[in-house]
């Protein structure tokens, strides 16, 4: 268990790498969520096509 000042020091040292790593993670998350949104859009059109258009 680190003391608080040691934790702060550790945080300071690892900031640049750690932030870059997390931002890469954030970009990955963003693409996944965007894909989900696109899927919902397509699904609503497909549903409209199957139900609404006379066939």
């Amino acid at each position: 268990m680190l003391r608080t000042d040691e934790k702060i020091e550790l945080n300071e040292k690892t900031v640049p790498d750690e932030l870059a790593r997390r931002k890469a993670g954030a970009r990955r998350t963003a693409w996944i969520i965007a894909a989900i949104a696109a899927a919902f859009f397509i699904a609503s059109l497909v549903q409209g096509h199957l139900v609404g258009i006379p066939h």
Binding site: I36, A37, F41, S44, L45
Partner: peptide
């Protein structure tokens, strides 16, 4: 928001 805004977009697109 992620789940339903695209559905609104679908509705108004139709």
């Amino acid at each position: 928001v992620i789940a339903v805004m695209p559905v609104l977009a679908g509705a108004v697109t139709m």
